[in-house]
Design a protein around this nucleic acid. Structure first.
Lengths: 230, 230
DNA sequence: TCAAAAGTGTTCCGAATACACCCATGA
DNA sequence: TCATGGGTGTATTCGGAACACTTTTGA
């Protein structure tokens, strides 16, 4: 038992994990096995230990619940509604993460059997536990906003990708169609993509060139006041 | 005494309060009266009560420490470094606020005597307690970023203002000079300002027209997908 | 009459948009 | 040979940036 002179809220983290498949932006949810909200879907999360930051806690939860180790992770917002957890006062620091979905599909599915984790399209979300619907809304808004002026979209793709895949990504996230020629013109003019000598494999049409995002180049440009904007 | 099965970090809020005077963007600091960091300057803040959200707590602290009641207030970031407070584990949710400085100068000064509150130019900051230097940096960056695509700058001015004052505001915050004609053209073309029939008083040169920000109009436009961008 | 800030338009340039056809490949 | 997506250039429009002089007012 731990005693304090004044009462303290419990502190947790919750993670909104975004992944992209062929046609959809998805998030990973976990089915709750216990009350409250038993059977309800919720974002993975848990208590913050005394010797870790909230960010470390978020990474740990992600690892424990999905097997995903390294990814883009950013603090979203701290939710502190007095009644947000029926068990008592719980303040939660929410994070959002971007993962290369296909890389981790198997691990997640493996851990699914134990914990019932599942990817849901952001357009077909089930009812969520606690105030997670609010967290979700904010995470989606943040992603939509951020993707336009920071090259974080690449975190959702594999290392090598075609320009069409990249365009599709933006179309899915921003939820609007983009012109192919204008998109390519703009993205290539930024000089952040490396054209590889490889090409797409096993497609029944002309194979597209593969590209890679050059993070060093981006960091260099950024520090010189360059702004990525789609 | 309050006892828990697992240890819990203490939860606090800290507030970065921005105000604008003639020539400078300023923040309000409080001189610490006790250890740790006695005599050091720090942002106003304190513990979160069990029956209030972090936002409520931030507003309360602001009221207690400065007498300022209503202002723009937004969550900044949650700081959770394990060693950020030498007394033990303390997680702090930081907020930033924008106030019409001249309105509150007196109240703040009144409370100054008791608590030693003082406005510091953001360009002449003293050493800060805890990790408050980090909080400050983030708050300033956030303000600079946000001011460009949301009309929050008006929160720093009085109800009625001249276009030159508004331009000065942006020049101070963004830290660069703007062209007068282009600025006026742009800001007026947004149709968010109401031109009043009044004029400036007591200046020893041609008196400028006074304007007012039309919040209703902005909310209406915003919901129709309008984007404020300077 | 001088100092100090208010107020006002036009030109130029670059970026964003709109738009349609041929090419390569595997089935 | 056909279906499927890959790949490419130009003309137009719109917004941002640069730029200087006249007006008003109180001291």
């Amino acid at each position: 038992m731990y005693s304090y002179e004044y009462p303290r809220p419990a502190l947790t983290v919750d993670c909104v994990i975004f992944g992209l498949d062929e046609n959809d932006l998805k998030v990973l949810l976990i089915e709750r096995a216990h009350d409250p909200y038993e059977g309800c879907w919720a974002f993975p999360g848990g208590f913050v230990d005394m010797d870790e930051t909230t960010e470390t806690a978020a990474k740990r939860e992600l690892w424990e619940e999905t097997g995903i180790k390294s990814m883009f992770l950013e603090q979203l917002y701290t939710f502190s509604g007095v009644e947000r957890d029926p068990r008592g006062r719980v303040v939660s620091v929410a994070y959002y993460a971007l993962v290369k979905l296909i890389d981790y599909n198997d691990q997640v599915r493996a851990s699914s059997d134990a914990k019932k984790a599942m990817w849901f399209s952001v357009n077909e979300m089930p009812a969520l536990a606690f105030d997670h619907a609010e967290i979700f809304e904010m995470a989606l808004q943040r992603l939509k906003g951020k993707v336009r002026y920071q090259p974080i979209g690449f975190e959702l793709l594999t290392e090598k990708f075609t320009l069409s895949q990249l365009q599709k990504l933006y179309e899915i996230i921003l939820n609007k169609e983009l012109d192919k020629r204008n998109f390519r013109k703009k993205i290539l003019s930024m000089d952040l993509l490396v054209e590889l000598s490889e090409r797409q494999q096993g497609v029944s049409h002309r194979a597209a060139k593969l590209y890679q995002f050059d993070k060093e180049k981006y960091t260099a440009l950024e520090s010189k006041g360059f702004s990525f904007e789609l």
